[in-house]
Design a protein around this nucleic acid. Structure first.
Lengths: 196, 196
DNA sequence: ACTTTTTGAGACACTAGAGTCCCATTTTTA
DNA sequence: TAAAAATGGGACTCTAGTGTCTCAAAAAGT
């Protein structure tokens, strides 16, 4: 054992493969079998059990991992820097890019709620951004920041879903989400291309 | 037997109670047990089995019933009449009011996809409304009608969810959804109260 | 009041999926 | 190359949930 016991090359790799496969499969069908997950991870079912004692433990690990990825995406977006609108655009782009993981993490809230030590740093950052934007007058101040956040998640989720199902060209997704999120579906000011 | 065999008073009532309980429970947790559903419906488990041979049959019935309610809501909104914007507002209001059922029917798309004879009259009506609005220039014409529809469902779903969890006062929900759906989260034109 | 229908409760058999072991290989590491 | 670690496969057991059946009581209909 050269490195720390937690992430030693071999173990770490298999573990990640399992968690990743779990997130991907469970995102599509949360009733996916452990056998299916093991197969998708190209690992024996017994190996899977060696890493995760029971289903709950695996699911929890997959959720935590996905949340970590999402948090990282939010961090990368540096939402506390620059104009709020630009920050929000970076945020959306980063989130949509997490694809599978986002669909999984928010596909079944019940799993998330059972997470005792769910650290909502992510929500905190997003909330801060929204409130900053409201204070600056660029985001609707007549609704709560919570509602706007719910809207953002919903739109991002919708975009990721549409992308996964190929209903929208993968590149255009973020642009679509941003456009609709910012301006809604109305277009009373016809003739004025907004985003372009 | 005085009336048709399908809806005779007693049978019809129990059946509806079961389907309704199923939709409500499954909306909250789609892994709800048949025993739990029976209990919620205040019915013996054997009685439940008497009406629905197996779980699939019950789920299918619950989905179909929910879809029917939703379709009725859309019909009531008469989306093909009057100004598109007003029609859309009626639509959103009607959908949000279906609450549980909407959360259930769209909470797990996989169930819906397994429905062989899913008649998408509902989607048709909504699509028509959107396309009419786009033609008239009141709805964003630069994105597909499909995308707008996805947005509408997402926002309505989010609103229903927020209402169920009590994060938004029940009456205000529809207004919130409409406001954000129409105008997005941006508010560059500060000082101009849009909806009021 | 009498007949028919519907019901609830319990006993049972069955199954898919979960979780546990063991052991012969392969892979890694020293 | 030898020792140690990791793996895959298979054989099990166990359980929750499902589905079936029977029977006596309650409800509804006549």
């Amino acid at each position: 054992m050269s490195t720390t016991s937690a992430e030693s090359g071999a173990r770490g790799r298999t573990r990640r493969a399992i968690v990743s496969a779990a997130a991907t499969l469970l995102a599509r069908d949360r009733r996916a079998t452990l056998a299916e997950i093991a197969q998708a991870a190209e690992v024996g079912r017994s190996t899977l059990h060696r890493y995760f004692a029971d289903r709950d433990e695996l699911v929890r690990a997959a959720v935590e991992d996905s949340l970590a990825l999402i948090e990282q995406a939010v961090l990368d977006a540096a939402v506390d820097e620059g104009p709020c609108v630009d920050a929000m655009r970076r945020l959306v782009t980063a989130l949509v890019a997490t694809g599978d993981r986002l669909l999984f993490a928010f596909g079944d809230l019940s799993v998330l709620e059972e997470l005792p030590d769910y650290d909502d740093r992510t929500e905190r950052m997003v909330t801060d951004l929204i409130e900053r934007g409201q204070a600056e007058g660029v985001f609707d101040p007549e609704v709560s920041a919570g509602w706007i956040m719910a809207t953002v998640w919903a739109m991002v989720y919708t975009g990721a879903e549409a992308a996964q199902q190929g209903r929208v060209p993968p590149h255009g997704v973020a642009a679509h989400v941003i456009r609709t999120l910012e301006g809604g579906i109305r277009r009373p000011d016809a003739g004025t291309p907004a985003t372009r």
